[in-house]
């Protein structure tokens, strides 16, 4: 009973974080929500008796993909600010 309640809670959290990730108006928040989504996915894999995937999801899905996304976001921001200062595209 307890575990089933936990599963439902986790599923709701998964759907909510995915929705916030795609619908959020702010890109920074969207990427952070994606990393949260990845960590929740890792939990879901653990619940599905798939510890191998849980490990990979945490390291690759949330970790590496998150780092790539944050770095790309930083690069896009830096260029945008550079353009605003000089008033033209670099």
């Amino acid at each position: 009973m307890m575990t089933l309640a936990f599963d439902w809670l986790l599923v709701v959290a998964l759907l909510w974080s995915a929705w916030r990730c795609l619908a959020s108006a702010d890109l920074n928040r969207a990427v952070v929500m994606f990393i949260v989504f990845g960590l929740l996915m890792a939990l879901a894999w653990a619940r599905l008796d798939a510890p191998d995937i849980a490990l990979a999801e945490a390291a690759i899905g949330a970790g590496l993909t998150g780092a790539l996304l944050l770095d790309a976001l930083g690069a896009l921001r830096a260029r945008r600010e550079g353009r605003d200062v000089h008033g033209e595209a670099p």
Partner: peptide, 11 residues
């Protein structure tokens, strides 16, 4: 936005 498309692809 391309970053959003990429996020959506991962979801």
């Amino acid at each position: 936005h391309l970053l959003r498309k990429i996020l959506a692809f991962n979801v």
